[in-house]
Design a protein around this nucleic acid. Sequence first.
DNA 1: CCATTTTTATGAACGTGTTCATAATAGGGT
DNA 2: ACCCTATTATGAACACGTTCATAAAAATGG
Lengths: 226, 226
Amino acid sequence: MPAAAARRPSKPREGLRERNKREKRTRIQRAARELFERLGFEATTAREIAARARVGLGTLFLYARDKRELLFLVFEEESQRLFAEADAAVEARPEAPLVDTLMELFGRFLGFYAARPDLAAALLREFFFRPYEPERLGALSREYGERVARLVERARSRREIRSDVPTALAANALFAHYAFWTQAWLGSRVVSRDDAEQRLRQALSWQVEGLRAPPDRRERKSDDDR
Amino acid sequence: MPAAAARRPSKPREGLRERNKREKRTRIQRAARELFERLGFEATTAREIAARARVGLGTLFLYARDKRELLFLVFEEESQRLFAEADAAVEARPEAPLVDTLMELFGRFLGFYAARPDLAAALLREFFFRPYEPERLGALSREYGERVARLVERARSRREIRSDVPTALAANALFAHYAFWTQAWLGSRVVSRDDAEQRLRQALSWQVEGLRAPPDRRERKSDDDR
DNA sequence: CCATTTTTATGAACGTGTTCATAATAGGGT
DNA sequence: ACCCTATTATGAACACGTTCATAAAAATGG
């Protein structure tokens, strides 16, 4: 690059303020992840996180509105990775049945949860009940929903799904089973991870059956009356 | 009864201990319900409940292991009433379609939640994720599941449901939709109660479709292959 | 009726998440 | 260089849920 173009190519240049903030945010996120994964969510105290991140206690709540949001901070990163992996796997088999593509997505999250069940349980408790504005967590939640909807849309264009069922509602119906079995597994641990995964797949296939396009040559019959 | 049988007919007679405990338990339950319903779960403090029940702060945690269990104490009573009502409604229409009977049950709970959404949200947050032994809450949860299973069993004997689907799994699949829409409604309030109820019914009917017995005269066709 | 044991009740004390008045720091303007 | 303003950082202070050493009350036995 010629020395003539000295006035910063396009970056607005980062002031000291911005840099310090970014560094602190990273330190906090790292500290939170390490402690949460090692000790669990409840057992980790805000004071520990602050100490490990080398910031004051109050500073923590400048970067996260409360302890739960520290959890999301950690999870956001991870789930972007999982989303990308799932997308790649789906692209590799464009004609795979809907259930299989859904399991590429759901299964990856189950795998992630399996490695840190306590953290995952805390996460999901907050995930499904969020009294916040749809900021942070809402975005993730929405992204998940959209991804499922995209898979449904594919299946619909392949006529695996009836066309008179709105995509969003079909996606909800499928997601419901994922939520249920995840909760059944992580919430009370009465079912193992393998059981949950297997039953989820089964439930999804029954669900797809209910959303399936009827055979082409079907005529109005009285068998699906009122 | 002859006076000769003077030694307590059958009641082991209630000592002072038992009576005091029973009275305290009732006072605590009443106080908790009143305050939770008026102020919401989070906003109600243990100290307020103790004061209103005229017991010491520590006494509260002699009757409930923690604040959440106070919530269950309140809910248990109410749900027994709702169960009984739903049972009666189902008995009144023994031949009603599965979806209708399910909505008799689910709808009643939605109605109860609608009257106290904040309380209900707190309740469900704990309901679906319970780190306890399957005591209190587990019993309720199990009772709910059994009730759904009973409705499925009925429908199955009427051939509304395929016979090769285990009752318990079909019940889970249906319950999953109830859980999902309840959470969607109470968790973030992005859907109204009416929307949630209507979409739940729709989802249930799609689900039943997937679990439905195939028409009698169907033969092995290649249309539902792998 | 009193003495002893067992059960139940209590609130001070603890550790927690969160707030907030105050201090430290960075960015400009002169 | 220096002041002035806006932004960011901090930990003492607060209110909360929960625990626990101690006290009160009830049962039991003589």
